[in-house]
Simulated assay, not measured.
Amino acid sequence: MAKNTFREPERIPKQKKQRRRLKLASWLNDFIGLDRLFGEDNAWPIRHIDRILWITFLLIVYIGLNHNAERLVRRIQRTKTQVDELRSQYTVLNADFMKSGKQSEITKRVAGLGLSDSQTPPHKIVVKSDEH
């Protein structure tokens, strides 16, 4: 009888993956000449230009949102100030209106017309039902 053994897999040497050349990186390298800027042997910025541009875009969006939030906070503060001013104006006008409706204030205003309060108390008029 044969003995069971594990078969050793054949070792295939791994081939290095060829990095695909990014169109954007090659275009920028051709247009701007980044290899001259960073040197022929230092290709790190050229290889990672897509990530650098993505982070730059995210930073611009972040800065824009931050400016928008600050503008919104300033607008809210300005509106709160206006609401407080209008509330105080309402309180003053409401107090003046309530004061002007009092009998003593009305008497002062109509005194110039020659009108005055009656000094005798009012009396009750009684009408009998058969007189009606």
Score class of each variant (00 low, 15 high):
Arg21His: 05
Lys80His: 12
Arg11Cys: 10
Phe38His: 03
Leu115Trp: 10
Leu34Asn: 02
Glu131Gln: 14
Val127Glu: 07
Asn94Phe: 12
Thr91Pro: 00
Thr5Ile: 14
Ser129Thr: 15
Ile46His: 01
Gly64Cys: 02
Pro9Tyr: 05
Asp96Leu: 14
Ser118Lys: 12
Asp35Lys: 03
Trp54Thr: 11
Glu105Asp: 11
Ser100Glu: 11
Asp84Asn: 09
Ala69Gly: 03
His123Gln: 13
Ala2Cys: 11
Phe97Cys: 12
Pro9Asp: 04
Asp117Tyr: 03
Val126Asp: 06
Arg78Met: 13
Arg71Val: 09
Gln103Cys: 03
Leu115Met: 13
Leu72Asp: 07
Phe6Asn: 11
Lys80Met: 15
Leu22Cys: 14
Asp50Asn: 08
Asp117Thr: 14
Lys102Tyr: 03
Val92Glu: 04
Asp117Leu: 15
Ser116Lys: 05
Met98Gln: 13
Ile52Val: 07
His123Lys: 12
Ile49Ala: 02
Arg20Thr: 13
Ala25Ser: 08
Asn66Phe: 08
Gln89Asn: 06
Arg51Asn: 11
Arg11Tyr: 12
Leu34Lys: 02
Phe31Tyr: 11
Lys108Trp: 00
Asp35Gly: 05
Met98His: 07
Leu93Ala: 12
Leu58Glu: 01
Thr81Ile: 13
Val73Ile: 14
Val126Cys: 02
Asn29Gln: 04
His67Asn: 06
Ser100His: 08
